[in-house]
Write a protein that binds this DNA or RNA. Structure first.
Lengths: 118, 118
DNA sequence: CAAACATATGAACAGATATTCACATGTTCA
DNA sequence: TGAACATGTGAATATCTGTTCATATGTTTG
């Protein structure tokens, strides 16, 4: 059974709707934005980011700090790397990860501000 | 078979690890932050936010603008409402939604800045 | 070189999540 | 009041996602 939507048949609202619609970001931009925030939307990854805000760290230390396994952390670091939120350098046996960009901290802090207001 | 992790047995690194660990947000704060960003991490919700940045809108108009159904939008508006990202008021037959807070726009824009840099 | 270790990766499983569909609720106004 | 409409909601489904486990890769150093 099909659902007919009659909402807003008045000309004025159709124009309003179209005006808003034409001012939105493209579907691709929206998708990329959502993908970015999806990366922030996981506790393990947020802990990693939080740790790297304090100190550059190797995978193994991040695992210790976050009470996780090196394997799980490695998987998540890949996600963070793909989103250009972290970068890495090699030092001896270790791979040292660090935040890639000031925006990471800024997004983190903006989120914190919102949380605190509730 | 248990995996023993030997990483960082030197005293200096144990101290470093503990220092970082003690400076992190609590698990609860991290969880709340991740939950917040999870809300931003969906294309439909991002479209809704983007539309509400331009104009306060009723459910039905949001559905038209986002090429979605009123039902799907209603479900997502509930998520946005619970995260205190949108608020609503009643006007006649309609329920008009709007952004709840300046942080919403700010987080959106910070994300955009990061995307643009890639 | 070989042992020891740090990191990466692929497959598999379990849990989370968005949409759809059917229907319920609640409002307006003729 | 009752038809028409706008919104909300619960269950079901299909898809996505994070962790685990086993194992591979690659590096250091004895």
């Amino acid at each position: 059974m099909e659902t007919f939507i009659k909402c807003d048949e008045e000309v004025s609202n159709i124009e309003l709707v179209n005006k808003v619609k034409n001012n939105l970001l493209s579907d691709e931009e929206i998708f990329d934005l959502a993908e970015l925030f999806k990366v922030f939307g996981d506790s393990t990854r947020m802990k990693i980011i939080n740790a790297l805000m304090k100190q550059d760290l190797c995978v193994c230390d991040i695992a210790l700090i976050t009470n996780s396994t090196p394997s799980a952390i490695s998987h998540q670091l890949r996600v963070l790397k793909q989103a250009k939120l972290v970068k890495y350098r090699k030092e001896g046996k270790s791979v040292i990860y660090s935040l890639d960009d000031e925006h990471v901290k800024e997004i983190f802090e903006k989120g914190r501000e919102h949380i605190e207001e509730i």
